[in-house]
């Protein structure tokens, strides 16, 4: 049922030099190149934020011998953005398999980000060993019931961070669970349909490739509560590559990892880190900047690679 639109990685494009502005109108995706000057033309009330994903601190493999260094490079690039992003969303897998000390390393590096605030949702690598104890101990404090999910409003846009890696049912990795879906329904109830909505979670909320566990099994029940809104953007990580899909007023977008790329769905025997030279991998890892301008429905989503 899901058609996958795989956009090419933005090879050969310098940071902040150009990006792809993609717009969704009536379910039709169109994209064009934009200049940094055009992107910077910010109307009053506009803001931008950055999505960092899948930092996988603790990983060491052919594609990247030093994910701490590539994360630091991403942070340096974020710090060069003008204006500075209002906040940063980390969409999970901070650590590679909860390697000892990895959460501390990520926290230390992200202290250096020039922004007001960093918000987190967990990836399965962050919680699978201890059921989320360490993650929630660090990042659960201001979330709903300490369980990791949350919502907030920023300049008229409603943000929802969901957790889809703690409900394991024996098949797919991603599931939201009854409690969270009920909370989401209550959270969205008072909002008018014209409120721009941005939802972020680790595992894609659409069925990217169930054979590899790239699916949130009960996402459809959550999406049902989003459909009455005129502008919905769903930001995910997990699959370490840029994929986009538009369904009605809902735009789905996955981000690159800052550590290593994974193969396109079905293009390899299995998911997992691609075994390619570092120089090649640099063109497939990076960061996402999202700009919202009031009065124009679409958000500008710019994915930039390190290579």
């Amino acid at each position: 049922m899901d058609r996958i639109d795989r956009r090419g990685f933005l090879e050969c494009m310098a940071w902040a030099g150009a990006g792809v502005l993609w717009t969704a109108a009536g379910g039709v995706v169109s994209s064009r190149l934009i200049s940094s000057a055009e992107a910077a033309e910010a109307a009053a009330g506009s803001f931008s934020f950055v999505q960092i994903s899948d930092t996988h601190i603790g990983f060491k493999g052919q594609a990247n011998g030093d994910p701490v260094a590539t994360l630091q490079q991403v942070v340096d690039r974020v710090n060069a953005l003008e204006p500075a992003p209002a906040f940063v969303l980390h969409t999970g897998d901070q650590t590679h398999g909860q390697k000892a000390g990895a959460f501390d390393t990520v926290a230390e590096i992200l202290k250096g980000v020039r922004t007001e605030r960093i918000l987190y949702v967990p990836g399965e690598h962050d919680v699978f060993l201890d059921g989320g104890k360490e993650y929630l101990g660090r990042y659960g404090k201001e979330t709903v019931g300490g369980r990791g999910w949350q919502s907030f409003d920023y300049k008229g846009t409603h943000f929802v961070g969901l957790v889809n890696v703690l409900k394991y049912k024996g098949e797919g990795v991603g599931a939201l669970g009854e409690d969270q879906i009920e909370w989401l329904e209550r959270d969205l109830a008072p909002l008018s349909g014209s409120t721009p909505l941005i939802v972020f979670a680790h595992v894609p909320l659409w069925s990217v490739y169930p054979q590899w566990g790239w699916v949130t099994e009960d996402a459809e029940r959550a999406l049902a509560h989003l459909r009455r809104f005129g502008s919905v953007t769903v930001l995910n990580g997990h699959i370490h590559q840029v994929l986009q899909k538009v369904e009605g007023h809902v735009s789905f977008h996955t981000a690159m990892s800052t550590a290593f790329p994974q193969p396109a769905p079905g293009s390899a025997p299995a998911p997992g880190p691609m075994k390619i030279p570092e120089s090649e991998a640099r063109r497939m890892i990076g960061v996402t900047e999202v700009t919202y301008v009031p009065g124009t429905h679409p958000l500008a989503v710019v994915d930039s690679t390190l290579g």
């Binding site: 007001e116 605030r117 960093i118 201890d130 059921g131 369980r147 907030f152 409003d153 920023y154 959270d187």
Partner: peptide
């Protein structure tokens, strides 16, 4: 630098109970 500023944010936490299904299984 990251600050604890909350400019422009409205948080809406609600209370429910946390659970750790994995910990018991692993132990």
């Amino acid at each position: 630098m990251v600050s604890e500023g909350r400019k422009g944010f409205t948080m809406k936490p609600r209370n429910t109970t946390a659970r750790w299904p994995w910990r018991a299984a692993i132990v």
